[in-house]
Design a protein around this nucleic acid. Sequence first.
DNA 1: TCCGTGTATGAGCATATGCTCAGATATTAA
DNA 2: TTAATATCTGAGCATATGCTCATACACGGA
Lengths: 125, 125
Amino acid sequence: MDREVMMDKNREDACLCRIIHSERVEKARRTALQAPEYDRLANLFKAMGDPTRLQILLALSQEEMCVCDLAAFLNITESAVSHQLRMLRQLYLVANRRDGPVLYYRLDDGHITRLLDIGLEHLRE
Amino acid sequence: MDREVMMDKNREDACLCRIIHSERVEKARRTALQAPEYDRLANLFKAMGDPTRLQILLALSQEEMCVCDLAAFLNITESAVSHQLRMLRQLYLVANRRDGPVLYYRLDDGHITRLLDIGLEHLRE
DNA sequence: TCCGTGTATGAGCATATGCTCAGATATTAA
DNA sequence: TTAATATCTGAGCATATGCTCATACACGGA
């Protein structure tokens, strides 16, 4: 067992817990992202972490659709769909185009499709 | 505007909302997954949709770490880390190996790293 | 300009989530 | 077996989330 128990002396706000491998903790800290990046990445995955939104995204990966079509497909109110679409739009998961009063939604870019594919691959491993 | 308003006659539990493109709704239904698959996929992305868990996953993408190292890195209690690790383990995002009393955690497979990479790529597009 | 259709938005409620605390379990050494 | 270390687990609390309802906005036709 190659452990080496020691308290963390390298930070002013020494944490309350034990550290076994301080070099690993240091390495993790060096390669860590900025806090806002974790938040933005979390928001992206969180947006994909809901069955309703996944149904929307997978439906849009086939073909662009409008709000009321999605509502019919999902069997929930158009309001609920609209709320979800706003979230997906703000996080750049979907985009839309207007044709008269109708807004057609589509996936924003190829990253989303790839994330969905890899996710499904992982489930079926 | 190529719309064709009609109520959905093809389902017994006719939904309350309008349908503009019934053929798109039908296509979405045909290509839809089973409900449990949406749930499992949602659980996967939901697990990645939290800053704390992302920090854990990105740290583990560098090197395997034990609970107390992760707690020191994250500056939260070992209990909180353990709770999160249990969730990540149950969803096959991480795996562990035991060396005496110490459990070393690592990413379960390459899918997770790919998801993280593509997610970061999307943010920086 | 007024109306109808399609969509967006804010408030509010029921449920889910992430953390901490207290205590239990597992492994090793004496 | 006893003690120490490392980790796990359940309960409970504060906050976040997803939905519905009511209402407002945007566009096109009469």
